[in-house]
């Protein structure tokens, strides 16, 4: 600080004395980092399910601490800088933790508060986007040319011209072979697979309807419950 050097002869406190890391250390650090990158790619190719994410984050954290410690000189840095920088991670954790405390616990107490899909009826909440309501969490891939007979069951989407809905209508518009499938709820509704039929039926409804077009779409389920949607969609295909 200011008091120690009022004289021409400067003490130790005057100039900066940086710690110089040997080049060898840096090379070693680089090699470790590249090795860890290799490792993380390796882990990716082993199927661990949800643990893949955990392993990826773990390795990333190790890599990040190595970069911080040596490349960023945190090892030799002033204590405050270290504390403040690491402290910022603490706030990130608060941010994440508290937000997840909300998003993961919605609908636990009052089963109907905060859920996107009514657990009792399977109905998707109003306002989820009419497209989402109509098609559910999943969209079928449009058939490749030559795969005739597999009409996309998406309704024609953007009649009002406001919401471009890319793949909805995709097949319907082009695939003249199945004119009744798209936007033809009455027929689909008559089909033998009642739940999926309804879903498809509502797909034809207007995307911007103020009333609740297609709320009954049974294919609409919560993201984690993929199986139900699958069944619904497959049933439609079977018609």
């Amino acid at each position: 600080m200011a008091d120690a050097h009022a004289h021409a002869e400067h003490g130790d406190d005057y100039y900066v004395h940086a710690h110089i890391t040997p080049a060898r250390t840096y090379v070693l650090v680089l090699a470790t980092l590249l090795f860890l990158t290799f490792l993380t790619v390796l882990a990716y190719n082993v199927h661990l399910g949800d643990w893949n994410l955990f392993v990826a984050v773990l390795i990333a954290t190790i890599k990040a601490s190595i970069v911080g410690t040596w490349f960023m000189h945190l090892k030799y840095e002033q204590r405050f800088n270290l504390i403040f920088f690491l402290g910022s991670l603490f706030f990130v954790i608060i941010f994440l933790g508290y937000t997840v405390n909300d998003t993961e616990h919605r609908g636990r107490q009052g089963t109907l508060t905060g859920v996107r899909v009514d657990p009792a009826t399977g109905k998707r909440a109003f306002g989820s986007g009419s497209v989402l309501q109509a098609e559910g969490e999943f969209i079928r891939l449009p058939p490749l040319p030559g795969e005739a007979g597999q009409a996309g069951q998406e309704g024609e989407a953007d009649r009002d011209g406001e919401v471009p809905e890319p793949e909805a209508a995709g097949a319907a518009a082009e695939d003249g072979a199945a004119p009744t499938a798209a936007g033809e709820p009455a027929e689909a509704g008559d089909s033998e697979a009642p739940t999926a039929g309804e879903a498809a039926a509502e797909a034809g409804a207007s995307p911007t309807a103020p009333a609740e077009a297609g709320e009954e779409a049974s294919g609409a389920t919560e993201g984690t419950e993929g199986t139900e949607a699958t069944e619904g969609a497959e049933a439609t295909e079977g018609e």
Binding site: Y98, N101, D102, T103, H105, R108, T113, G114
Partner: peptide, 8 residues
């Protein structure tokens, strides 16, 4: 009142 979970 925003529809946050009761735990939060």
């Amino acid at each position: 009142a925003s529809g946050m979970s009761e735990y939060a």
